[in-house]
Design a protein around this nucleic acid. Sequence first.
DNA 1: GATTTTTTTTATCATTTGTTAAATGGTTTC
DNA 2: GAAACCATTTAACAAATGATAAAAAAAATC
Lengths: 187, 187
Amino acid sequence: MLIDKILDQIYILPETSKQVLKSHISEVKFPKGHVLFKANKTESSIYFIKKGIVRAYAYSEDNEITFWFGKEGDPIVSMQSYVNTKKGYEDVALLEDCELYELKTDKLQSLFLEDIHIANWGRKFAEFELIKSEERLIALQFNTATDRYIALLKNHPSIIQRVQLKHIASYLGITQVSLSRIRAEIK
Amino acid sequence: MLIDKILDQIYILPETSKQVLKSHISEVKFPKGHVLFKANKTESSIYFIKKGIVRAYAYSEDNEITFWFGKEGDPIVSMQSYVNTKKGYEDVALLEDCELYELKTDKLQSLFLEDIHIANWGRKFAEFELIKSEERLIALQFNTATDRYIALLKNHPSIIQRVQLKHIASYLGITQVSLSRIRAEIK
DNA sequence: GATTTTTTTTATCATTTGTTAAATGGTTTC
DNA sequence: GAAACCATTTAACAAATGATAAAAAAAATC
């Protein structure tokens, strides 16, 4: 997805502000398997996915748990780094070869203080991420793993087509064996 | 908690901007049991809790599930109303007599477009809510109900002292019977 | 302060999910 | 295209959680 569309979906900026913001965004490419964010590190950039699919995961005891998938148009952000300049708790790894838009956090922070339109763009960016986070939280608390698998199948079929089931099982909070049972049942 | 402290904890505003923002905030009181937000309604205000404790809940089939508790200093927001002017899915009810600070959403929205400092205050407000939402999401996905009960006991003991266990069980995603078993075990 | 009502705990049994291991199916590599 | 490797499904058993009901404890009401 092109950067103009990604930026516009968040908040329509006046043309001058948009050009300023875009002047700080560059394109980067990484191969499948590349680890973009490392846990316990303060990340200095945020990204938007032009092409590809990625996952965020963290470790609990010795097993890793996937808690987010990103695909075309989605932002990749280590929230603790972005909001508090603190170390993040997550790895983000690429599940496919990816093309990304990169934006340095420190540049963005100074733009927030200089340009009211960009400040409001940043506000809407956080607000939309908040809405998404809340929706995931509600889904996790209200729906069974079966419900959430069916919802994923319906709303994000490309995730299920493009991602290994072990990651999806982990994302749903169940074992791979349980996911297999669910898949066998709903057929 | 006083409004100055609540506002400052989010983002330190220049004195003039702070006075403008405060001029739109008023104090209101409601008795225990009052339903502040109603599901399927677009709410026109956000609140900050000066004194008291509240819960947000929604219905799944016929049983209600509590998914948030708020206490002194916390904001009360129907995110769908606040961000998208859409209907919320949650009720918010007061568990004690409460004193609240009220801020009309439409006023705040126009201030965002007029004052860059208030826009950045609004950005930090959303960002901090996002951090809290992510932390809850991670806790829900990574930790067992027992872990989360112990964390609640440690980090928010006043919730457990002041709220009925049926609401806490629902918040933890388990039955009241299971919570009783957990409480019996960790003693 | 005794009675009624509500909240919390305990007990029993059924159901669901996890664990481990083996079998099947699919990809990649030489 | 056979061999090796990885992903997914199936099977059997164990452990954890839910459902229901009853008992105990606590709170509210008169």
